[in-house]
Amino acid sequence: MTISSMTGFSQGAGFSAPFHWRWEIKTVNSKGLDLRLRLPAGFDGLDIPARAAISRALARGACYANLSVTRESPAVTAKINRDLLVHLMETLSSLPHPENIGPLTLDGLLGLRGVVETGEVEEDEAASASARAQILAGLDAALHQLQAMRRDEGEALAVVLGQRLDRIEALTRDADASPARQPQAIREKLREAVAQLCELGRFDETRLYQEAVLLAA
């Protein structure tokens, strides 16, 4: 019989441009499979295949699987509205310049609303699909590592359990072979106990002894 532990830990990491990803999986004892899966925003589509992969690999234990993903390139872009910037510069240069106001600066103009336009980077669907595939492959690798750890711990537990069972068996044999467990020794002990009871009061020694033998049989 193969014994597998329910406790274990594994992790796996990788890079699929522009995403860095990492799996961390931990399992502890539980009657059945209790799965807790955490996925970052934007990767919710991995929920069903990830749960299916974990269910194929594990039958019991409370499993905590966490995926973290970071993007290498920025998720937003910045673009200068040149037409607006030129218009502001021309307009301001044509206005009178009060003495109590400092000269025109570029950083001041760039801070005005609408001069710098920001927006989210358009997702590359091919890159995202490739990242999701590699993340699922990384999950399988982490699960294989977890299974190996649980098997190794189970084999170590099996050795300890076998030693304990062998010790129990040896103690049982020794107890069965003990002279004190032999019928004649037991009868002698009963006879002594009945004699002591008779000394304490008026009892029928023969009847007491017969009943004691019957109870011990």
Rank of each mutant, 00 (worst) to 15 (best):
T27A: 12
M1F: 13
R113T: 03
R36Y: 04
G102C: 05
S5P: 00
R173K: 13
Q163E: 15
E199Y: 07
L88K: 08
R187C: 00
P74K: 12
T206C: 01
L58E: 07
V115A: 00
S94W: 01
D83I: 02
I3W: 11
E125Y: 07
L104V: 06
L139K: 07
A141S: 01
E169G: 05
P98F: 09
S94L: 11
V28E: 12
D107I: 12
S128T: 12
G119V: 05
A59D: 14
D83P: 00
A158N: 08
A195R: 10
N100L: 10
E199A: 14
A127L: 11
H144S: 12
E117R: 00
A175V: 07
A217Q: 14
T70K: 11
F15D: 04
L35K: 01
S4Q: 11
D204T: 06
E99G: 03
L136R: 12
M6F: 05
T70Y: 08
E24A: 14
G154W: 14
D34W: 07
R202Y: 03
A41Y: 10
E169T: 08
L92I: 13
A216P: 01
E205T: 05
R38T: 09
E205D: 05
G102I: 07
E24Y: 11
G201K: 06
T91Y: 06
G45E: 15
V194E: 03
R151M: 07
A175R: 14
L33P: 03
Q11K: 10
R167K: 13
M149L: 01
K26I: 08
Q182V: 02
G14E: 07
A177C: 11
L197N: 10
E90Q: 15
L67P: 09
R150S: 03
R22W: 09
G102L: 06
S5C: 06
Q163V: 09
A62T: 09
S178R: 11
L95G: 00
R164L: 13
N66T: 15
A193H: 01
P98M: 14
Y209C: 04
L35F: 06
P179N: 10
P103N: 09
D174G: 05
S94P: 02
T7D: 05
A52W: 05
G14D: 03
H20G: 02
E153R: 15
Q182S: 13
Y64N: 02
Q134L: 14
Q163G: 11
A216N: 04
I135T: 00
A170Q: 13
T206R: 01
A75N: 09
A57E: 07
N100S: 14
P40R: 07
E120T: 10
R56N: 10
L197R: 14
S128Y: 08
N81F: 02
A175I: 12
E192W: 01
S128R: 15
S10D: 10
I25E: 09
L67M: 11
G102D: 06
Q196R: 13
H144A: 10
P18T: 08
L139H: 04
K189P: 00
G8N: 07
I135M: 15
G111C: 13
L109N: 04
E24G: 14
L58W: 05
M6D: 07
V28Y: 08
P49S: 11
S73A: 12
I48V: 09
M6H: 04
L106C: 01
R38V: 15
I186A: 06
R56L: 02
L35I: 04
D47W: 05
A53M: 14
K26H: 13
L136F: 10
R173G: 05
N100Q: 09
R60T: 00
H87A: 03
I168F: 08
V159C: 04
M89L: 07
